[in-house]
């Protein structure tokens, strides 16, 4: 398998009046063609910033401090604006967090997709592009007569599908889906996720899913990256990470979500809040909220290392299967609920 995308020690800061916000810190991962990566983490942990770095669509106050983004052989941050513009959508497309608002209200939906096609493939005629939009609409399940309608005439689910159709318009090698289904109800959400997955597998496209919802990520990702406060804490094959989480944060995150198929367990919230990235904690950034933090965690930044094949971790004191029970004893429980069911869905 060849590598499509590689982030090497990506470090990106935002300049604000209060100082530099360390939004992304030493994030490294690589993604093969046809593979799907899920980035999971709490709000504000830098998931969207990573996506925007890959698109090179950062706001004006962002500064790339260190690291590289390699995409299909290009080092994105050494290319000119024009070269990057040509790569966008043709190679990397995006499904935005607010799909509802990512369509221009004054042009018809079909024309917005035609526009993308004609911009990147000037040799394609307009009629040909319209034909392609029709087949894309069929693919995502919108009646093709609707292509000349305006966004406000679409329902929420249809807009979401239209945005997906738009992302597929130029057959990109990679689609970044930033919270693609957060605004939808659970049934539509599930349906759309399945459809995206089906399309992805058929055309062997890579995908990065970004979500705070562990269940969404679990459903669609081959590999999973867990982000916290601008850092990757754990990354590995989805099965590995979810069944045998090594980082206490991953572990807590999973206990904070209900599992429909697994055994019933009490939901355990993670106490505290993500840190202020203007002045992140020393050592491991998760240590103030971690029940198993040691002196080393507070002082020394944990190294990013491969623990088993393809499974990376940054933690001084990882969760071990045998001491998973020990962890359970100290884990805080939801008030009023007892029992030793905590972690049974993911702790062993």
């Amino acid at each position: 398998m060849d590598t499509l995308l590689r982030l090497e020690d990506l470090t990106m800061h935002y300049k604000t009046k209060a100082g530099w916000v360390q939004a992304i810190d030493n994030v490294s991962f690589s993604l093969h063609r046809g593979q799907s990566l899920g980035l999971v983490g709490e709000s504000g942990c830098g998931k969207t910033s990573v996506a925007m770095s890959i698109m090179r669509l950062l706001p004006y106050n962002a500064k790339l401090v260190k690291g590289r983004v390699l995409f299909g052989g290009h080092d994105l941050y050494t290319l000119s604006d024009e070269e990057v513009r040509q790569l966008r959508w043709k190679e990397v497309a995006m499904i935005f967090q607010a799909a509802m608002n990512s369509l221009n209200p004054v042009y018809s939906v079909g024309n917005q997709i035609v526009e993308a096609i004609v911009t990147h493939e000037p040799e394609t005629g307009e009629d040909e592009a319209r034909e392609r939009v029709k087949s894309l609409f069929e693919l995502v399940g919108i009646p093709k007569e609707r292509m000349d309608h305006y966004p406000h005439e679409y329902s929420g689910g249809m807009k979401q599908r239209a945005v997906i159709a738009m992302a597929l318009a130029c057959n990109p090698s990679l689609i970044i889906a930033d919270e693609p289904t957060t605004a939808l109800d659970v049934i539509v959400q599930d349906k759309i996720l399945r459809e995206i997955e089906e399309i992805r597998r058929t055309i062997n496209m890579s995908m990065i899913y970004i979500s705070h919802d562990v269940s969404v990520i679990a459903e669609v990702s081959d590999i999973v990256g867990v982000m916290y406060a601008g850092r990757l804490l754990e990354l590995g094959p989805a099965d590995d990470v979810f069944k045998r989480p090594k980082n206490p944060y991953t572990y807590s995150l999973m206990n904070a979500y209900p599992s429909i198929l697994g055994e019933k367990h009490d939901l355990v919230t993670i106490p505290g809040e993500p840190p202020n990235l203007l002045d992140p904690p020393t050592g491991c950034r998760f240590h103030p909220r971690c029940d198993w933090a040691t002196k080393e965690c507070r002082e020394v930044e944990p190294a990013w290392r491969e623990i088993t094949k393809g499974h990376y971790l940054a933690c001084h004191n990882p969760v071990r299967t045998e001491h998973g029970t020990a962890h359970n004893k100290t884990a805080r429980r939801a008030p009023g609920k007892g029992g030793d069911g905590i972690g049974t869905s993911g702790g062993n």
């Binding site: 698109m55 967090q97 221009n104 042009y107």
Partner: peptide, 23 residues
């Protein structure tokens, strides 16, 4: 968001300005 989306679509800067933001 649609202005950001237009930039992500790789439309030339002028097109984003005129047909998305200004329009």
């Amino acid at each position: 968001d649609y202005v950001m989306a237009a930039r992500a679509k790789g439309l030339p800067d002028k097109v984003v300005r005129d047909r998305y933001a200004a329009r």
